[in-house]
């Protein structure tokens, strides 16, 4: 039983961490709580689902893995672009007004939800299945694990590493780090906050996109127009455990959340319906005990 908790906890924890990564990145660098993160998560999954169906018409069947990979790349890129456009149009003009940013970003989620609903036409059409990437089962020790779960965890690790490299080694990444540490100094050095914020949003939207595709193709195997709420639920829980704005914190937060959920699934029978509330319950518990999470950034006076 313990091995189950550890293995499932780690694997799912990594995926959850990926879901929250974009959200935490935007907050850490620009101080914006961008709730539209959930919409990007959802949008990318939908685009992926559609591309998966139509691409095989254009690609020869010699390389069966090409379709998902291209679909992934295309939907992630598209989501990144849409994300930065949305940010520039709707969020950038009201920077500094925290209440409005929260309201507008929630509205963003609703806008995308409605758009998808309208384009798909009906509730049935909007909730279709996403075929999983790979099939198969492996045994880790005595625990039976689906290979696609391992794939998702692996992609998540890749994403974390890539992001860290981006922040440490590239000029843009260094500029982003500078902004997060000392806004005034960075501005004095001539860093354009507008372009960097747009870039940050684009990156975080891409991360949300990858997370969306991974989550739907390996965990839920379906999409729905309310997906963005699930994404936000997980993001909140993880970010509160690990602290908003810290990448390390998100990784740890995701893992802790994964273990907690794995343990809860085993300990509480028929937890099916409570599953929905689980991220929120964790959130509330953690916030009661430690209001700023484990590694929260931007700690204020007192």
């Amino acid at each position: 039983m313990l091995e189950q908790i550890i293995i499932f906890g780690t694997l799912s924890g990594l995926v959850f961490a990926l879901i929250a990564l974009g959200f935490t990145l935007v907050y850490g660098i620009s101080g914006i709580v961008n709730l539209t993160h959930g919409a990007f998560f959802m949008l990318s999954a939908y685009i992926y689902g559609i591309l998966i169906r139509f691409l095989p018409n254009f690609i020869s069947l010699e390389f069966p893995y090409l379709t998902p990979v291209i679909a992934l790349i295309l939907s992630t890129l598209f989501t990144g672009i849409i994300g930065s456009i949305f940010y520039r149009l709707a969020l950038h003009p009201i920077l500094g007004d925290e209440i409005s940013i929260l309201v507008v970003s929630i509205c963003g989620c609703l806008i995308f939800q409605q758009l998808i609903f309208l384009i798909m036409g009906s509730l049935q059409a909007a909730s279709f299945r996403i075929p999983s990437l790979i099939h198969g089962i492996v045994y880790i020790g005595s625990v039976r694990v689906l290979t696609r779960t391992i794939l998702a965890a692996f992609v998540s690790i890749l994403a974390f590493i890539t992001l860290t490299i981006l922040l440490e080694k590239t000029k843009a990444g260094n500029a982003m780090k500078a902004l997060s540490q000392d806004l005034e100094a960075a501005m004095l050095m001539g860093i354009s906050t507008e372009r960097l914020y747009i870039f940050t949003t684009a990156i975080s939207a891409c991360l949300a996109g990858i997370a969306g595709i991974m989550f739907t193709s390996t965990v839920t195997e379906s999409v729905s127009v309310a997906m963005w709420l699930d994404c936000l639920a997980y993001s909140f829980a993880i970010v509160i455990i690990g602290g908003l704005g810290s990448i390390k914190g998100t990784l740890l937060g995701g893992l802790i959340f994964g273990y907690a959920q794995a343990a809860a699934n085993i300990i509480i029978p028929y937890a099916g319906y409570l599953q929905e509330s689980f991220p929120f319950i964790i959130m509330i518990l953690v916030l009661i005990i430690r209001p700023k999470g484990l590694f929260g950034k931007r700690v204020e006076m007192e």
């Binding site: 936000l232 909140f236 509330i284």
Partner: peptide
């Protein structure tokens, strides 16, 4: 942000 998230939850 934490307050907003908590109240939403």
């Amino acid at each position: 942000p934490y307050l907003a998230l908590l109240t939403m939850a």
